[in-house]
Amino acid sequence: MKKSASLLAALALLVGLTSACTKETPTGPSGFYTDLHLILNEGPFGSGTATITAYSSDTIVQSAFAAENGFPLGNVAQHMIESDSMLYIAMNNSNTIHGVNRNTLKHSWSSTIEQPRYFAVDENYLFVSNWKDSSIYVLDRTNGAKIDSIDVGHYSEQLIVFNNKLFAGIGTYEGPWTLAEIDLGSFDVKHHSIGDVPNSFAVIANELYVLCTGDENWGIGDDTPASIWKYEGSSNGAMKVAAPGNIGSHAIGLSTDGTDAYFLNATYDGAIVKWTPGQNWPNSTLTLPGGYNLNLHNNNLYFFDAKDYASSGEVRVYSTTGSLLETIPAGVIPRQLIY
């Protein structure tokens, strides 16, 4: 009996050790954070850490990642994406990608990618753009291992999978800027002309649109204006469909409800404007300025106010007509929300 008890204890210990050493894997829709929305906060630049704010109508948890894992997220969060109960987070200054359980926020794995920017996922891979070299990295979604890389000729920005192809905005705040169309089977790359500083994508009525910020030179040189481009197919490339008259007009954060598009009419301090394909560049605003980024979900516009960039920001929720519905306290420099 005593021997059996010892064997059971040893077995239990072995099982315990095995499970402790096994990497956290998605466990399906159960966990404290499953029904909470997640706000990604960049955190202060250089010193300090990024955070995740988790919230629902009656719950708010600041610094949720650190609370769950006992260590900070890293310096300057850039982007996160959810897929199959996993949450992938790009830490720009920390040169790290975190794979996290969406339901528990428990850390699963980390992978080193220098200056990671944005993600896209398809059925097989996690794609990561970066500002350190001309590659888009192809990662294993389960453990972050680098599987392949796609040379796109220059630093890459926002990514989107559309019609079984990966599209990437190429170029940062310095050109040359192109729209890269990447075959997901062969990883062959085709470049299309695009406006200056491609910033964000939206699929409206099953058409792909690209918002370009325009080149900002902060008074040192001439600016070029923002523009919206429509992808016309692999042979035709992209075509400019709207642009402001003023070269000093810039825009970021293209979002859509499937019919109309919404974006901020300035970098760092934008107001929400509404644009419908076929119309000219919009001049009237739905809200006051002050936006750092914009997301849209379920007909709600999430307007990220970074305030003074040295204290906690907030996310203001507007209807698509510009009515303020809710204000959510966030961390330092909020930039994205996962619903």
Partner: peptide, 10 residues
Amino acid sequence: HTLRDNTAVG
């Protein structure tokens, strides 16, 4: 405090 609103994360 390292953040102007004195929040604990800073």
